[in-house]
Protein backbone atom coordinates (compact mmCIF):
# COMPACT_ATOMS: atom_id res chain seq x y z
CA UNK A 1 0.00 0.00 0.00
CA UNK A 2 1.32 3.46 -0.83
CA UNK A 3 1.94 6.07 1.85
CA UNK A 4 -0.89 8.16 0.40
CA UNK A 5 -3.28 5.25 0.84
CA UNK A 6 -2.11 4.68 4.40
CA UNK A 7 -2.46 8.36 5.16
CA UNK A 8 -5.97 8.38 3.81
CA UNK A 9 -6.99 5.35 5.88
CA UNK A 10 -5.43 7.02 8.92
CA UNK A 11 -7.22 10.35 8.43
CA UNK A 12 -10.51 8.60 7.66
CA UNK A 13 -10.28 6.77 10.98
CA UNK A 14 -9.66 10.03 12.79
CA UNK A 15 -12.53 11.75 10.99
CA UNK A 16 -14.79 8.87 12.04
CA UNK A 17 -13.61 9.25 15.67
CA UNK A 18 -11.94 5.84 15.61
CA UNK A 19 -8.99 5.90 18.00
CA UNK A 20 -5.46 5.24 16.79
CA UNK A 21 -3.71 2.52 18.81
CA UNK A 22 0.05 1.95 19.26
CA UNK A 23 0.50 -0.71 16.57
CA UNK A 24 -1.59 1.09 13.94
CA UNK A 25 0.13 2.82 11.07
CA UNK A 26 0.50 6.55 11.65
CA UNK A 27 2.37 9.37 9.86
CA UNK A 28 5.79 10.15 11.33
CA UNK A 29 4.77 13.75 11.96
CA UNK A 30 1.75 12.60 14.00
CA UNK A 31 3.98 10.35 16.11
CA UNK A 32 6.55 13.11 16.60
CA UNK A 33 3.97 15.73 17.52
CA UNK A 34 2.39 13.35 20.03
CA UNK A 35 5.72 12.45 21.62
CA UNK A 36 6.52 16.14 22.00
CA UNK A 37 3.09 17.12 23.34
CA UNK A 38 2.67 14.12 25.68
CA UNK A 39 6.20 14.17 27.07
CA UNK A 40 5.99 17.92 27.62
CA UNK A 41 2.81 17.27 29.52
CA UNK A 42 4.44 14.46 31.54
CA UNK A 43 7.40 16.69 32.40
CA UNK A 44 5.00 19.41 33.54
CA UNK A 45 3.29 17.03 35.96
CA UNK A 46 6.63 16.04 37.44
CA UNK A 47 8.21 19.50 37.63
CA UNK A 48 4.85 20.77 38.87
CA UNK A 49 5.37 18.84 42.10
CA UNK A 50 8.26 21.10 43.10
CA UNK A 51 6.54 24.45 43.78
CA UNK A 52 3.92 22.74 45.95
CA UNK A 53 6.30 20.36 47.70
CA UNK A 54 7.90 23.57 48.97
CA UNK A 55 4.94 24.04 51.35
CA UNK A 56 4.22 20.49 52.54
CA UNK A 57 6.27 20.84 55.71
CA UNK A 58 4.74 24.23 56.47
CA UNK A 59 1.07 23.51 55.79
CA UNK A 60 -0.99 25.26 58.47
CA UNK A 61 -2.97 22.21 59.64
CA UNK A 62 -2.73 18.44 59.47
CA UNK A 63 -5.74 18.37 57.15
CA UNK A 64 -4.06 20.78 54.74
CA UNK A 65 -0.83 18.81 54.91
CA UNK A 66 -2.52 15.48 54.16
CA UNK A 67 -4.40 17.09 51.27
CA UNK A 68 -1.31 18.67 49.78
CA UNK A 69 0.64 15.43 49.99
CA UNK A 70 -2.22 13.62 48.26
CA UNK A 71 -2.28 16.24 45.51
CA UNK A 72 1.46 16.14 44.90
CA UNK A 73 1.30 12.34 44.87
CA UNK A 74 -1.45 12.53 42.24
CA UNK A 75 0.77 14.72 40.07
CA UNK A 76 3.50 12.07 40.24
CA UNK A 77 0.90 9.56 39.08
CA UNK A 78 -0.14 11.86 36.22
CA UNK A 79 3.47 12.06 35.12
CA UNK A 80 3.67 8.29 35.18
CA UNK A 81 0.45 7.74 33.17
CA UNK A 82 1.71 10.14 30.54
CA UNK A 83 5.25 8.78 30.36
CA UNK A 84 3.83 5.28 29.98
CA UNK A 85 1.45 6.45 27.23
CA UNK A 86 4.33 8.21 25.45
CA UNK A 87 6.44 5.07 25.62
CA UNK A 88 3.82 3.24 23.53
CA UNK A 89 4.98 5.48 20.66
CA UNK A 90 8.44 3.95 20.80
CA UNK A 91 10.39 6.51 22.83
CA UNK A 92 11.79 5.01 26.03
CA UNK A 93 11.61 6.44 29.52
CA UNK A 94 15.35 7.13 29.79
CA UNK A 95 15.30 9.10 26.58
CA UNK A 96 12.32 11.15 27.74
CA UNK A 97 13.95 11.92 31.10
CA UNK A 98 17.18 12.73 29.37
CA UNK A 99 15.41 15.29 27.19
CA UNK A 100 14.00 16.94 30.30
CA UNK A 101 17.27 16.93 32.22
CA UNK A 102 19.32 18.35 29.36
CA UNK A 103 16.78 21.12 28.75
CA UNK A 104 15.94 19.75 25.30
CA UNK A 105 12.31 19.21 26.24
CA UNK A 106 10.06 21.90 27.68
CA UNK A 107 7.56 21.80 30.50
CA UNK A 108 4.81 24.25 31.37
CA UNK A 109 6.28 27.69 32.11
CA UNK A 110 3.95 28.21 35.03
CA UNK A 111 6.16 26.07 37.24
CA UNK A 112 9.04 28.51 36.84
CA UNK A 113 7.33 30.93 39.21
CA UNK A 114 8.09 30.78 42.96
CA UNK A 115 5.62 29.85 45.71
CA UNK A 116 6.15 32.65 48.21
CA UNK A 117 3.31 32.19 50.69
CA UNK A 118 0.81 29.57 51.83
CA UNK A 119 -1.86 31.35 49.79
CA UNK A 120 0.04 30.29 46.68
CA UNK A 121 -1.11 26.71 47.35
CA UNK A 122 -4.66 28.00 47.05
CA UNK A 123 -4.00 30.08 43.95
CA UNK A 124 -2.19 27.20 42.24
CA UNK A 125 -5.03 24.77 42.92
CA UNK A 126 -7.69 27.20 41.77
CA UNK A 127 -5.96 28.83 38.80
CA UNK A 128 -3.14 26.56 37.66
CA UNK A 129 -5.00 23.27 38.09
CA UNK A 130 -8.09 25.08 36.80
CA UNK A 131 -6.32 26.07 33.59
CA UNK A 132 -4.84 22.60 33.30
CA UNK A 133 -8.30 21.03 33.59
CA UNK A 134 -9.62 23.38 30.92
CA UNK A 135 -6.85 22.18 28.61
CA UNK A 136 -7.11 18.54 29.58
CA UNK A 137 -10.81 17.75 29.47
CA UNK A 138 -10.99 17.98 25.64
CA UNK A 139 -7.91 15.71 25.46
CA UNK A 140 -9.96 12.86 26.94
CA UNK A 141 -11.25 12.57 23.36
CA UNK A 142 -7.81 12.82 21.72
CA UNK A 143 -7.36 10.57 18.71
CA UNK A 144 -4.48 8.57 20.19
CA UNK A 145 -5.97 5.87 22.42
CA UNK A 146 -3.34 5.59 25.18
CA UNK A 147 -3.21 9.39 25.49
CA UNK A 148 -6.99 9.73 25.72
CA UNK A 149 -7.20 6.96 28.34
CA UNK A 150 -4.45 8.56 30.43
CA UNK A 151 -6.28 11.88 30.25
CA UNK A 152 -9.56 10.33 31.45
CA UNK A 153 -7.76 9.02 34.51
CA UNK A 154 -6.03 12.36 35.09
CA UNK A 155 -9.15 14.47 34.73
CA UNK A 156 -10.99 12.32 37.29
CA UNK A 157 -8.27 13.12 39.81
CA UNK A 158 -7.81 16.79 38.96
CA UNK A 159 -11.12 18.05 40.21
CA UNK A 160 -10.17 17.61 43.86
CA UNK A 161 -7.01 19.61 43.17
CA UNK A 162 -8.95 22.63 42.07
CA UNK A 163 -11.51 22.36 44.83
CA UNK A 164 -8.91 22.07 47.60
CA UNK A 165 -7.17 25.15 46.18
CA UNK A 166 -10.33 27.21 46.13
CA UNK A 167 -11.11 26.09 49.66
CA UNK A 168 -7.73 27.36 50.85
CA UNK A 169 -8.41 30.77 49.29
CA UNK A 170 -11.96 30.84 50.60
CA UNK A 171 -10.71 30.24 54.14
CA UNK A 172 -8.12 32.98 53.81
CA UNK A 173 -10.70 35.34 52.30
CA UNK A 174 -12.77 35.00 55.48
CA UNK A 175 -9.77 35.48 57.73
CA UNK A 176 -7.88 38.42 59.19
CA UNK A 177 -6.88 41.48 57.22
CA UNK A 178 -3.40 40.04 56.76
CA UNK A 179 -4.84 36.76 55.45
CA UNK A 180 -7.08 38.60 53.01
CA UNK A 181 -4.08 40.56 51.75
CA UNK A 182 -2.11 37.36 51.34
CA UNK A 183 -5.01 35.84 49.38
CA UNK A 184 -5.26 38.81 47.01
CA UNK A 185 -1.49 38.94 46.58
CA UNK A 186 -1.36 35.28 45.52
CA UNK A 187 -4.17 35.81 43.01
CA UNK A 188 -2.37 38.89 41.68
CA UNK A 189 0.84 36.96 41.09
CA UNK A 190 -0.69 33.77 39.62
CA UNK A 191 -3.39 35.25 37.42
CA UNK A 192 -1.42 36.30 34.35
CA UNK A 193 0.94 33.30 34.27
CA UNK A 194 -2.21 31.11 34.44
CA UNK A 195 -3.81 33.00 31.54
CA UNK A 196 -0.59 32.38 29.60
CA UNK A 197 -0.82 28.62 30.23
CA UNK A 198 -3.07 28.33 27.18
CA UNK A 199 -0.14 29.25 24.96
CA UNK A 200 0.31 31.89 22.26
CA UNK A 201 -2.63 33.57 20.53
CA UNK A 202 -4.18 31.55 17.71
CA UNK A 203 -2.59 33.67 14.99
CA UNK A 204 0.81 32.94 16.56
CA UNK A 205 0.40 29.17 16.88
CA UNK A 206 1.07 27.72 13.44
CA UNK A 207 0.60 24.05 14.38
CA UNK A 208 -2.94 24.41 15.69
CA UNK A 209 -4.64 23.64 12.36
CA UNK A 210 -2.71 20.40 11.89
CA UNK A 211 -3.25 19.32 15.50
CA UNK A 212 -6.97 19.99 15.16
CA UNK A 213 -7.11 17.92 11.97
CA UNK A 214 -5.42 15.10 13.86
CA UNK A 215 -7.74 15.61 16.83
CA UNK A 216 -4.93 15.90 19.32
CA UNK A 217 -6.24 19.36 19.99
CA UNK A 218 -9.96 20.06 20.04
CA UNK A 219 -10.16 23.78 20.75
CA UNK A 220 -7.82 26.64 19.97
CA UNK A 221 -5.68 28.34 22.62
CA UNK A 222 -7.79 31.49 22.55
CA UNK A 223 -11.09 29.62 22.81
CA UNK A 224 -9.92 27.79 25.94
CA UNK A 225 -8.38 30.92 27.41
CA UNK A 226 -11.65 32.82 26.96
CA UNK A 227 -13.57 30.04 28.69
CA UNK A 228 -11.10 30.13 31.58
CA UNK A 229 -11.32 33.90 31.98
CA UNK A 230 -15.13 33.82 31.89
CA UNK A 231 -15.31 31.17 34.60
CA UNK A 232 -12.69 32.73 36.88
CA UNK A 233 -14.19 36.21 36.57
CA UNK A 234 -17.34 34.75 38.13
CA UNK A 235 -15.62 32.63 40.75
CA UNK A 236 -13.38 35.39 42.09
CA UNK A 237 -16.49 37.21 43.28
CA UNK A 238 -17.23 34.39 45.71
CA UNK A 239 -13.84 35.09 47.27
CA UNK A 240 -14.58 38.80 47.47
CA UNK A 241 -11.27 39.33 45.68
CA UNK A 242 -10.37 40.79 42.29
CA UNK A 243 -8.41 39.69 39.27
CA UNK A 244 -5.47 42.00 38.51
CA UNK A 245 -6.77 43.24 35.18
CA UNK A 246 -8.28 46.75 34.88
CA UNK A 247 -9.57 45.88 31.40
CA UNK A 248 -11.60 42.90 32.57
CA UNK A 249 -15.20 43.74 31.73
CA UNK A 250 -18.32 41.85 30.65
CA UNK A 251 -19.06 42.32 26.98
CA UNK A 252 -22.81 41.99 26.50
CA UNK A 253 -22.47 41.76 22.72
CA UNK A 254 -19.90 38.94 22.77
CA UNK A 255 -21.42 37.31 25.85
CA UNK A 256 -17.86 36.96 27.13
CA UNK A 257 -15.49 38.92 29.33
CA UNK A 258 -13.05 41.21 27.54
CA UNK A 259 -9.63 41.17 29.12
CA UNK A 260 -6.36 43.07 28.94
CA UNK A 261 -3.31 42.49 26.78
CA UNK A 262 -1.05 39.58 27.71
CA UNK A 263 2.62 40.28 28.27
CA UNK A 264 4.00 37.90 25.65
CA UNK A 265 7.55 39.14 26.17
CA UNK A 266 7.39 37.70 29.67
CA UNK A 267 5.91 34.46 28.34
CA UNK A 268 8.68 33.91 25.78
CA UNK A 269 11.38 34.99 28.17
CA UNK A 270 10.27 32.40 30.77
CA UNK A 271 10.06 29.71 28.09
CA UNK A 272 13.58 30.58 26.99
CA UNK A 273 14.80 29.89 30.53
CA UNK A 274 14.78 33.33 32.12
CA UNK A 275 11.89 32.84 34.54
CA UNK A 276 12.47 33.29 38.28
CA UNK A 277 12.94 29.55 38.96
CA UNK A 278 13.91 27.81 35.70
CA UNK A 279 17.38 26.98 36.94
CA UNK A 280 16.22 25.78 40.39
CA UNK A 281 13.55 23.52 38.93
CA UNK A 282 15.86 21.79 36.51
CA UNK A 283 18.60 21.44 39.09
CA UNK A 284 16.16 19.91 41.57
CA UNK A 285 15.00 17.39 38.95
CA UNK A 286 18.53 16.40 37.93
CA UNK A 287 19.62 16.13 41.56
CA UNK A 288 16.68 13.89 42.44
CA UNK A 289 17.42 11.69 39.45
CA UNK A 290 21.12 11.39 40.17
CA UNK A 291 20.68 10.84 43.89
CA UNK A 292 18.08 8.17 43.15
CA UNK A 293 20.46 6.21 40.91
CA UNK A 294 21.63 3.93 43.73
CA UNK A 295 18.01 3.05 44.55
CA UNK A 296 17.34 1.99 40.98
CA UNK A 297 20.53 -0.05 40.92
CA UNK A 298 19.87 -1.65 44.29
CA UNK A 299 16.35 -2.63 43.30
CA UNK A 300 17.70 -4.35 40.20
CA UNK A 301 20.41 -6.14 42.15
CA UNK A 302 17.80 -7.31 44.64
CA UNK A 303 15.50 -8.52 41.86
CA UNK A 304 18.36 -10.48 40.30
CA UNK A 305 19.33 -12.04 43.61
CA UNK A 306 15.76 -13.08 44.27
CA UNK A 307 15.37 -14.66 40.86
CA UNK A 308 18.65 -16.56 41.32
CA UNK A 309 17.40 -17.78 44.68
CA UNK A 310 14.15 -19.00 43.18
CA UNK A 311 16.04 -20.80 40.41
CA UNK A 312 18.36 -22.72 42.75
Amino acid sequence: MSVQDLEKIFQDKIDADIRIEPKDWMPDAYRKTLVRQMSQHAHSEIVGMLPEANWITRAPTLRRKATLIAKVQDEAGHGLYLYAATETLGTGREELLDQLHTGKAKYSSIFNYPTLTWADMGAIGWLVDGAAIMNQVPLCRASYGPYARAMVRICKEESFHQRQGFEILLTLSKGSEAQRRMCQDAIDRWWWPSVMMFGPNDDASPHTAQSMQWKIKRFSNDELRQRFVDICAGQVKILGMTLPDPDLVWNEHRQHYDFGAINWDEFWSVIKGNGPCNKDRLEARVKAHEEGAWVREAALAHAEKMSRKRAS
Binding site: Y81, A85, E87, R153, A303
Partner: peptide, 12 residues
Protein backbone atom coordinates in the same frame (compact mmCIF):
# COMPACT_ATOMS: atom_id res chain seq x y z
CA UNK B 1 -5.84 -3.31 31.49
CA UNK B 2 -5.21 0.10 33.07
CA UNK B 3 -1.73 1.06 31.88
CA UNK B 4 1.89 0.19 32.46
CA UNK B 5 4.88 1.03 34.62
CA UNK B 6 8.53 0.17 35.11
CA UNK B 7 9.63 -1.97 38.05
CA UNK B 8 12.60 -4.15 38.97
CA UNK B 9 10.48 -7.25 39.58
CA UNK B 10 6.91 -8.49 39.85
CA UNK B 11 6.56 -7.71 43.54
CA UNK B 12 7.65 -4.13 43.01
Amino acid sequence: HVGSLHAADAQM
